[in-house]
């Protein structure tokens, strides 16, 4: 007899109404597609057909074995509706508009414990080691191996796949398994986070 143990990622979602759940899943498709959805509440046919159409794997009202749970921040469905702008958000918005003008280029490897915080975009040509961190209000482009953490609230993150890195794009944790291309571009398209491969042509 063959016996294997797997650790999988489960996202638990409470169903208030199926429309907002569909909207939520649509926006976070890239993040959630490799998870098992554990839906709590009553499912209607709309939601069911949506889940099947998208190929989500899900269980409904199932009593799953308990595991370590953490609250995660995902893009809420209502981010595109106007939220009251706090000064901070205005600041981010302004820098976002001026993307490209402030650019920091790092040409040395970033070592464990080194922390780069920058008000614009950051380009790193060397590797980022485990324990290093870049936090940018602009985009982040990493050309070397990434084992450290990247956080960006800019246009995009361009980076190779990473096993250990903790990647946050606009506060959303990007699943490391979603970064499957040789060079990935994490960006918004119609308020949805998507991950696309970047061709060599585009780099040049």
């Amino acid at each position: 007899m063959k016996c294997k143990q797997y650790t999988i990622k489960v996202i638990e979602i409470g169903i208030d109404d199926s429309k907002s759940v569909i909207e939520f899943l649509e926006i976070n498709y890239e993040l959630l597609k490799n998870h098992l959805l554990s839906l709590k509440g009553k499912m209607d046919s709309n939601l069911k057909s949506y889940l099947e159409e998208k190929g989500f794997r899900y269980v409904n009202n199932m009593d799953l074995p308990s595991g370590r749970a953490k609250d995660i921040t995902l893009v809420a469905p209502d981010t595109n509706t106007t939220v009251e702008n706090t000064p901070e958000e205005e600041e981010i918005e302004e820098l976002y508009q001026n993307m490209g003008s402030p650019l920091k280029i790092i040409k040395t490897p970033l070592r464990s414990g080194q922390y780069v915080e920058y008000d614009g975009s950051v380009l790193i040509t060397e590797r980022m080691n485990s324990g290093a961190k870049i936090a940018a209000l602009g985009s982040v482009i990493a050309l070397g191996t990434v084992e450290g953490d990247i956080s960006s609230v800019g246009d995009c993150i361009i980076m190779p796949p990473t096993k250990r890195g903790n990647i946050l794009f606009h506060g959303v944790k990007i699943d490391n398994e979603s970064l499957k291309y040789p060079i990935n571009r994490i960006m918004f398209v119609n308020d949805r986070i998507i991950i696309k491969p970047l061709s060599k042509k585009e780099i040049n």
Binding site: R111, S112, G113, Q114, S130
Partner: peptide, 13 residues
Amino acid sequence: VSSIRDSDRAIGI
């Protein structure tokens, strides 16, 4: 790995 990360930090300092 732990030795390498710690020395990486030491090199940074």
